[in-house]
């Protein structure tokens, strides 16, 4: 990772590629005493136990189960690579992947741009705590509640949104019911809920950019737009990268909105990967196969996160 980072940034500006970001503190750090280790272990233990019990062990067990035929109510039987062979030929698995990617593209695309816009507006125009609070409001409502409220509001015949569309002379739209609009609708409902939260994360990143940079730019007569493209975006990159990695992984895990509204339909239009796993495991009792899909999803997400971090050089900042 380091080497590629250096290669990418090497031509732009010379900077110490090997020193850690904190290296600008004046005094050299004292070396850690080995005597701190037991105390450090004690501090780490609670988190480590939580990690082992709630993440590591279930993950290992899932990996094991993915090689078994397990119907949940009978003990698992070793099945070798059967589940993975089946996975490759499963039309619905590939459909689930496709549908999920569609969701992520719409969800993350719209959400990131909208959140960035909101954050920059807040940063440049207002410091009002009230506005920040209002932005966060949708995020405070439970996901399932948000989904159900939108589901009712968007109904083709009785929904308030379609009533409004009719008043302005448009035809009603069956947002959740049409195969072509179901995924974008679910994606946008979740944008509505998460955009304020994402905007606040980005806003925090914006506050870390020194004001002096903007003052200097203003003195040089740079326009707001130019400042955004030349100062804000480049200096925000590490924060943006982190936000993207987190939101993309979260977005891939879309489940609740689908579970309370379309339940995978119409046909297979919203059978996203998590819903498919849930169906296989808890409705059809194919726990072994569901575990194999989980492992496949894990591999995809891990690869994606690595790729994003690498491409966006999240590890270092241009502020140094």
């Amino acid at each position: 990772m380091r080497t590629s980072t250096e290669r990418q940034s090497g031509t732009a500006e010379p900077r110490p590629g090997t020193s850690p970001p904190q290296s600008d503190t004046s005094a050299p750090r004292p070396r850690r005493r080995a005597g701190d280790l037991p105390v450090a272990m004690v501090f780490l233990l609670p988190a480590a136990v939580g990690f082992a019990v709630f993440y590591l062990w279930p993950a290992l067990r899932t990996a094991y189960l993915s090689f078994t035929d397990y119907s949940l109510l009978a003990p698992p039987e070793w099945a070798g690579l059967d589940n993975y062979r089946r996975l490759l030929g499963d039309r619905l698995f590939w459909n689930a992947l496709k549908v999920t990617v569609e969701y992520v593209v719409v969800n993350i695309g719209v959400q990131t741009i909208a959140a960035l816009g909101l954050a920059v507006l807040m940063h440049r125009l207002t410091r009002s705590g009230l506005i920040r609070g209002v932005l966060l409001l949708p995020y405070l409502v439970a996901n399932v509640v948000v989904a159900l409220i939108w589901y009712t509001m968007l109904d083709a015949q009785l929904g308030i949104v379609n009533q409004a569309l009719e008043w302005i002379g448009l035809d009603p739209v069956a947002f959740f019911g049409e195969t072509s609009t179901a995924i974008p609708t679910i994606a946008l409902v979740n944008v509505w809920r998460h955009v304020g939260y994402t905007a606040l994360l980005i806003f925090a990143g914006l506050q870390a950019i020194p004001k002096t940079v903007y003052e200097a730019a203003a003195t040089d007569g740079a326009s707001e737009a130019r400042m955004f493209w030349r100062i804000t975006l480049p200096l925000l990159r590490p924060v943006l990268a982190l936000v993207l990695v987190l939101t993309v992984i979260g977005s891939f895990q879309i489940f609740d909105t689908v579970a309370v509204t379309t339940k995978g339909g119409p046909i297979n239009a919203t059978r996203v990967i998590y819903y498919y796993i849930y169906e296989q495991a808890f409705q059809r009792f194919n726990f072994g196969y569901a575990a194999a899909v989980c492992v496949a999803l894990f591999a995809i997400l891990a690869g994606l996160a690595l790729l994003q971090l690498k491409l966006l050089r999240a590890g270092d900042s241009d502020l140094d």
Partner: peptide
Amino acid sequence: MPSLAIARSGTSVNDGFGAGK
């Protein structure tokens, strides 16, 4: 009869009946 899209877009068939649809 409503299309599948309309039927699946939000309210139940009984609520649709109750609302006079």
